[in-house]
C-alpha cells in the first residue's frame, strides 16, 4: 500500500512537472514572431511588398549589367568610363539628397493640427511607396533627416522650423504613391481619424521641384 501510494504521488508530481514545463515554454514562445500566425491578408500584402522590391532589384541588375559591359568596352577602347561614372554620380546626387531634383510625383497638403511623429510616419509611407525625393514645404528630407516638435505647433525638420499648412512633395511614380497614401485603411484614413479637424489633400503633379538638403549645422 505504502509503495503504491508513493508511486502514485511521484507519478502525479511528475505529470504536474511535465505540464509546468510545457506551459512555461509556451508562455515564453508566445511572443516569438511567426509568419504562420499572420492573416492571409497580411501575408498577401507582405508578398506584394517583397515582389515589388525584388522587381526593383532585377531592374537594377539588368541595367547595371549593361553599364558594366559599356564601361569595359569604353576602357578597352581607351576612352575611360567617364559616361558611366557621370551617370552614377547623377543617381547618387539624388539618392544622397545633395542635389535639387524635379520630376512627376504627388503633393500632400496638410491644413490643421499635425505633429512631428505623424510627419515622420508620412515620410516613411512615401519612402515605402517608392518616393525618390521628398520635401516638407521647401525643406528637403535627406538620408539623415529627423523630426522634432517645434514652437507654436510647428515641426522641426533637421532643426529647421516648418510651419503649417504643410505641403509634402514627393517625386516618384505618382499613381503608386497616390494609391499608397489614399487607399482604404491607408495612412490618410488613419490621419483623418486621429486629426478629425485637419484637411488632407493628395494630388498628382506632373512636375515637382525639391531643393537639395541643407548643409548640416
Amino acid at each position: 500500500m505504502r509503495s503504491n501510494a508513493g508511486g502514485i504521488a511521484a507519478t502525479a508530481v511528475a505529470l504536474f512537472l511535465g505540464i509546468l514545463v510545457v506551459t512555461q515554454f509556451r508562455s515564453q514562445d508566445v511572443y516569438s514572431r511567426n509568419l504562420q500566425l499572420e492573416t492571409p491578408a497580411s501575408l498577401t500584402t507582405l508578398i506584394a511588398n517583397l515582389s515589388d522590391r525584388n522587381n526593383s532589384l532585377r531592374d537594377e541588375i539588368f541595367e547595371l549589367r549593361l553599364r558594366v559591359v559599356a564601361a569595359r568596352d569604353s576602357v578597352a577602347s581607351g576612352q575611360g568610363s567617364l559616361a558611366e561614372s557621370q551617370h552614377e554620380i547623377d543617381q547618387l546626387r539624388i539618392f544622397a539628397a545633395v542635389s535639387s531634383a524635379h520630376g512627376p510625383g504627388i503633393a500632400v497638403k496638410i491644413d490643421g493640427t499635425f505633429d512631428d511623429r505623424a510627419m515622420s510616419d508620412l515620410t516613411n509611407e512615401l519612402r515605402n511607396a517608392g518616393a525618390e525625393a521628398i520635401s516638407v514645404n521647401d525643406v528637403r528630407v535627406g538620408p539623415r533627416s529627423w523630426y522634432a516638435p517645434g514652437p507654436e505647433r510647428s515641426v522641426l525638420l533637421d532643426g529647421r522650423q516648418v510651419n503649417g499648412p504643410w505641403i509634402v512633395r514627393a517625386i516618384g511614380a505618382s499613381d503608386v504613391m497616390h494609391v499608397a497614401i489614399t487607399r482604404t485603411g491607408g495612412i490618410q484614413g488613419q490621419f483623418e481619424l486621429i486629426y478629425p479637424k485637419t484637411r488632407f489633400t493628395v494630388t498628382k503633379e506632373s512636375t515637382i521641384e525639391v531643393p537639395a538638403v541643407a548643409a548640416r549645422r
Binding site: 514572431r33 509568419l35 500566425l37 499572420e38 492573416t39 497580411s42 501575408l43 500584402t45 507582405l46 511588398n49 517583397l50 515589388d52 522590391r53 539618392f95 544622397a96 539628397a97 516613411n124 509611407e125 519612402r127 515605402n128 518616393a131 525618390e132 528630407v141 535627406g142 538620408p143
Partner: peptide, 18 residues
C-alpha cells in the same frame, strides 16, 4: 534615404527585407 520601416501584421520589414 529610401529606407522605410514597414509593418505588415506583426512582421517588420526594413528596406523591404523581413
Amino acid at each position: 534615404s529610401s529606407t522605410s520601416v514597414y509593418c505588415v501584421g506583426s512582421t517588420i520589414m526594413v528596406n523591404g527585407t523581413l
